[in-house]
Structure formats: C-alpha cells, structure tokens
Amino acid sequence: MLPFSAKPQQVESCIAFLTYPGVKLLDVTGPLQVFEDANKLLDRIAYATPIASYYGGPIETDAGVLLNTRRLAGVGLDESDTLMIAGGAGVHAACRDARLVQAVQRSAEKAGRVSSTCTGAFLLGAAGLLDGKRAVTHWRHCDQLAEDCPDCDVDPDPIFIEDGRVWTSAGVTAGIDLALAMVERDHGRDLALELARSLLVYVKRPGGQSQFSEALKQQKRSATGRFDALHFWMKDNLTADLKVEALAERSGMSPRNFARLYTEDTGMTPARAVEQFRVDAARAMLENPNVSIKTVANQTGFGNDERMRRSFARLLGVTPQAYRERFAVDVTTGV
C-alpha cells in the first residue's frame, strides 16, 4: 500500500477521494476506476488514488459497502494533486460538520485542482470554493445548490464544468466523464479515448453535452405533465407537420387555446419547442461523420441545411459544421 502521507517519488499526481457516511459508492468507484486504469495503460503510477475521510477508518456507503479510508489531513496534497469530493445522501450532514468543512478548505489551499462528483458540489460550496465559479450538480439538486450558494453560477445543463481549478460534474456516471476529461488534460486525448474504449463507455462525452435530452428537459419544464405524450410523439415524428394547428388537433384543442396553454405550461412557444427538438436530434446525428449535413437537415425536419444552420446559430451559437468538427465520433471505433 502506498504511503500517501509522503507521496512516493514515482507517483506523478494524487487524486484524493473525500468520503463521509452515506457517500454514493459509484461517485467514488467510477472516477477511481478511470484513474487506476490510466495507470495500467501508462504502465506506471501516474495517479495515486487514496480514499479519505475526516477521521480515517471504515466509511459506510449508501450501498452498505464499507470503504477503508485514510485521514484527509494525512494525505499530503500539493499543487500537482486533486481533491475530489464524492456526492451522496450524507453530503448535507457533512456540510454541517464545521471540522470537515475546514479540512476541505485546508486541503483545497494545497491542491492544484478541486472537484466534485454529483452532490459533492454542496461540500465545495460549504467551503466557499464555488464562490464566483460556474458549477453543476445532478439536475434534481441544481435549484438547491443555487439557493445554498448564491455567489455561484449554477448551470443545470452540462454533464461537467471546468472553471479554472474547480471542476464539478452532474449525477453519478458523469463523474466518469469528468475523470476522463482530467486524464485528457493531464496525459492527452489518445489515452482518454483508449480508457473510454476499455471501460466500454460508448463515447467520451464532452462537458458541454447536456445532462438530458430535449424531451426530458421539456418534461422538467412542464408544470403539469399535460404535454408529455405530445413531446415524445414530436421527438419521434420530426419530419411531420408540427405547426401549431397540427399539434393543437393532436391535443384535441383549438390552435389558440393550445398555444396559450402550451406556453403557460412549458414556458416557451410551440414553435420554439419544435425547433429545440429538431436541433437536439440533429446534434446526435451530426456526431456520425458519415451522414451528410443535408441528410441530417432533411431527416430532422428542417427541410434544408440553411434553415438548420440558422437554428443552430440561434440556439447553440455554432454552425452544424462547427458542431460536427468538435463532437463527431468515428462510428467504427466509437471514439
């Protein structure tokens, strides 16, 4: 076992996982596996991965599995290291532990990078590390994080965010994406892609990718759920007539009443919702470089690539070609 209180010469960096009673097991083991597999592919100990807690000793996770932890104060972080705070149901009790919050602050002062997976962001916030930063957590908890951390710009959409030395991720498996991004930053894209393949991750997802599809976003926006069935039909019929009159008829309403109720319920007009559904579908298709942009535009209901280009510029601030250049995936390898 590595003596983490004094980092061995051959270890390049330490990723210290901070835990507490009730921590979510996958928030620890998912990212940890990425860093351990990176060591195997590099054939050297690029990352030490101590699991820490305030006192050390066994910590019971939400799954009932006990983790053998070290005292956080004894890990010995420096500028080449990362403090990673896992999420879990116990995080709010952890935030009320003044000694633990102070320990996080002291460790963060020493570490070059601080991060959280899922609701671990609340402990970063309690330590004042999210002040003036843009951050994310699981979408269910974003409103609460914004309320608890008013000086933080909470963005509920991305799967992870890097803002200076502070990294935060959305729920559960997004911690794996965050860890892959850290490996890419530390050791290059080729290693991160090889890790994604070995872990059977379909694709190394960029941080700007949304936590959920447009259909799920619309469900979350909806105050009543009245239009959920319509939204999923729209998603599967993007080349159909999706004008207000057609959607109103499908919903059994007059066009005027439908437009009014839809806007009240979802906070956007039917036309904007249709546009967002089509952009969402086009983004997924553009990740396949073997499908032409013209085909994407036709199959997602835009009709022509110029209309799709205008929608991308309006909603995403990029052109379809620029989106493809950034996010295209080789379908033969999955990367």
Rank of each mutant, 00 (worst) to 15 (best):
A98G: 00
V28Y: 02
Q33L: 11
L32R: 07
C95F: 02
G30V: 06
P58N: 02
V75Q: 00
T49S: 14
G30L: 05
I59S: 02
G88Y: 09
R44S: 13
G64W: 02
T82E: 00
V91R: 02
E79M: 10
G57W: 00
P31D: 07
A94P: 08
D62M: 13
Y20C: 07
P50L: 02
G22E: 06
A89F: 01
Y55E: 15
A89L: 13
V75S: 04
E60S: 11
L25I: 13
M84A: 12
D97L: 04
A48L: 04
T82H: 00
A46G: 08
A38Y: 05
D97Q: 10
V65D: 00
I51C: 09
Y54I: 12
C95E: 10
E79W: 03
L42W: 08
D27K: 03
I45V: 12
V23P: 01
D97V: 08
L83G: 11
A89Y: 06
R99A: 11
S80R: 15
V75E: 06
Y54R: 13
L67K: 03
A48T: 00
A63L: 14
L42K: 09
A73D: 14
G76S: 10
D37I: 05
G90D: 08
R70L: 15
K40A: 15
G30P: 07
Y54K: 14
L77H: 03
P58M: 03
T61Y: 00
V28P: 07
A73Q: 13
G22I: 01
Y54N: 06
I59K: 01
G57V: 11
P50F: 03
A93I: 11
P31R: 01
E79V: 12
G64Q: 11
G64A: 08
L72W: 04
G87T: 00
K40C: 08
K24G: 09
I85H: 00
V65A: 11
M84V: 12
R71I: 05
L32F: 08
I59F: 01
E60M: 13
E36V: 14
P31A: 01
G56Q: 09
D27H: 06
V91E: 02
R96I: 00
D81I: 05
K24I: 01
A94H: 05
V34S: 03
A38D: 05
Y55S: 14
V34I: 14
D62T: 15
L77N: 03
Y54S: 08
A94S: 09
C95V: 03
G74F: 00
C95R: 08
Y55H: 13
A46V: 10
I45M: 08
I45Y: 07
M84K: 01
L72Y: 03
D43S: 12
L67M: 11
S53L: 11
S80M: 07
E60K: 07
S53T: 06
G22R: 01
Y47D: 06
K24E: 15
G56I: 11
D97A: 04
D97P: 10
I45A: 10
E79D: 14
P58K: 01
R44A: 12
A63R: 06
R71Q: 15
G56E: 06
E36R: 04
G57Q: 07
T69E: 08
E79I: 03
E60P: 00
V28I: 14
A46R: 12
P31G: 04
V65Y: 11
A89N: 12
T69W: 05
T82Q: 04
D27G: 06
A73W: 07
A38L: 11
R99H: 09
L41I: 12
V23S: 04
R96Q: 15
M84H: 13
L41C: 02
L26D: 07
V34C: 09
